[in-house]
């Protein structure tokens, strides 16, 4: 394998890939020689990205897809399969978060999260699993919040959908391991989510900085390129031993106590 062209001539599908993490993955994968197709609900952002992707690879494509509607998902997947055949790599970035305490959470918003976070992934899996199994190989990467494993304040309902998605992904991995299909999750920290933007926008710079220092081992926000690098590792032959695993990309947030008074007290006394 050439490490500067890790995905040479691989067919890649990125769902919800028109912006942020999906976009970073798309551009990195294209620079590594992959033939990237994007499916997203946002036409403008999708076409914008398509122009950039075409500079790497003329065959790049954008599909408009409504994740809430199973007909739209099936139609898009069918079009992808007839254009490119089974994908070598599928990255799913779809997800929505409505944080609330349980007593204030509307059931409708939980239903929407179940629909977009779990059902949409299920619908796409269902369309792609058969052809990928026939192809006897491939890599699937699911972007999930690390709340799937850790839980946190104010995200009971959201965490439930993410936990469900994580469990589904791991079991899916076991079903398709004998066919050489690797299925992994990237567990994203708060700093890489929309909440990270809110913290950066609404807090004073100093306060936001203090927040990252207090809650993470690496005391800064994550960058979408860092997620894309991890996705590249999992998508390419570099990750060929890895399946049914969750990669925390969160600056070590899950491994420490959030309130680090101990550290500061120790510092003050030192």
């Amino acid at each position: 394998m050439r490490y500067d062209k890790m995905l040479q001539d691989k067919h890649i599908l990125i769902t919800a890939g028109a912006s942020q993490i999906g976009k970073a993955c798309a551009l990195l994968f294209a620079s590594h020689g992959g033939i990237v197709a994007i499916a997203d609900k946002d036409k403008e952002a999708g076409n914008d990205l398509l122009h950039q992707l075409k500079e790497y690879q003329e065959d790049s494509k954008f599909y408009h897809m409504d994740f809430t509607c199973s007909d739209s998902v099936r139609d898009t997947c069918d079009r992808y399969l007839s254009d490119f055949g089974a994908p070598d790599v599928w990255v799913n970035c779809e997800g929505v978060c409505h944080p609330a305490f349980i007593d204030e959470q509307e059931e409708a918003s939980l239903r929407e999260m179940i629909n977009l976070n779990i059902l949409s992934a299920f619908r796409i899996m269902k369309c792609l699993a058969g052809p990928m199994k026939e192809k006897q190989g491939g890599a699937i990467i699911q972007m999930i919040s690390d709340y799937a494993v850790t839980g946190a304040n104010g995200v009971s309902a959201y965490g439930a959908t993410m936990g469900g998605l994580f469990a589904m992904t791991n079991s899916f991995a076991m079903d398709y391991a004998p066919y050489g299909i690797r299925v992994n999750s990237i567990l994203l920290g708060i700093s890489l989510s929309a909440m990270g933007d809110i913290i950066a926008d609404e807090m004073e710079d100093e306060e936001a900085e203090e927040f990252w220092v207090r809650t993470q081992m690496i005391p800064r926000r994550g960058r979408v390129q860092e997620v894309a690098d991890t996705a590249l590792f999992l998508a390419s032959d570099m990750g060929k031993l890895i399946t049914a695993e969750g990669f925390f990309v969160n600056g070590g947030q899950n491994s420490i106590a959030h309130n680090q008074h101990y550290r500061w007290n120790w510092r003050a006394n030192a």
């Binding site: 991995a173 997620v227 690098d229 925390f248």
Partner: peptide, 21 residues
Amino acid sequence: DMSSYITGQSFTVDGGARRQL
């Protein structure tokens, strides 16, 4: 530097054996 935001983690490399029933 590909993993510049990953620390304090444990990665299991067993081809999924730990989840196999």
